[in-house]
């Protein structure tokens, strides 16, 4: 077992453990903070695998923006300190779906790769990622850009009654 293996295992354990805490913790805001730890650990996994750029994107986008937006929203509505008793979280279906999906993916990966040893990939530097995205994968990239752009425009239209969403005459 190399250092990288040990790091991967440790970071994976942190990611899974804090991920489990996200859904089991009764403290609403702490759940969000556990999500920060979980996503940070995933960024660590990317770093160990040599995908430096993806790791920092993970930190910038997920930890720095998505989770913060989530926490922000929770704090604007209700954010009790201490456990909440009125959380509506059906445990059994969640365990079934989550466990089933996890097991299915694990079987799929184990079946697809068996115990083949692959040579270590080149580190995912910004240069290589850029060449790939704007070379081989430019069409999917543009399609995703358009998707994101339309989502942005949609968000603006929804949040501004004077632009879209005509007011329905009441009664």
């Amino acid at each position: 077992m190399t250092v990288a293996d040990a790091l991967l295992l440790a970071l994976g354990a942190v990611a899974v453990g804090s991920g489990a805490l996200v859904v089991t913790s009764a403290h609403l805001v702490r759940s969000g903070l556990y999500l920060v730890v979980s996503l940070g650990a995933v960024a660590g996994l990317y770093l160990v695998l040599g995908a430096e750029l993806v790791a920092w994107v993970q930190i910038l986008v997920y930890v720095g923006a998505v989770v913060v937006l989530l926490l922000f929203a929770v704090m604007l509505t209700r954010a009790p300190i201490g456990p909440s008793t009125d959380l509506d979280r059906p445990a059994l279906p969640a365990v079934l779906i989550g466990g089933g999906l996890g097991a299915g993916l694990a079987v799929l990966f184990a079946d697809a790769f068996r115990w083949v040893r692959y040579p270590e990939a080149d580190p995912g530097t910004a240069e290589r990622v850029g060449e790939q995205i704007f070379g081989a994968w430019v069409l999917p990239f543009e399609v995703i850009s358009i998707l994101l752009l339309s989502a942005l425009v949609g968000a603006i239209v929804l949040s501004r009654p004077d632009v879209g969403a005509r007011s329905t005459p009441e009664a």
Partner: peptide, 23 residues
């Protein structure tokens, strides 16, 4: 070789500290 990206990503964590201390 991607120091700038690292810096911007890490600076973004500051907001987590603000929310943590505030809440």
């Amino acid at each position: 070789d991607i120091g700038l990206f690292l810096v911007l990503a890490v600076l973004g964590i500051g907001v987590v500290a603000v929310l943590m201390s505030a809440w």
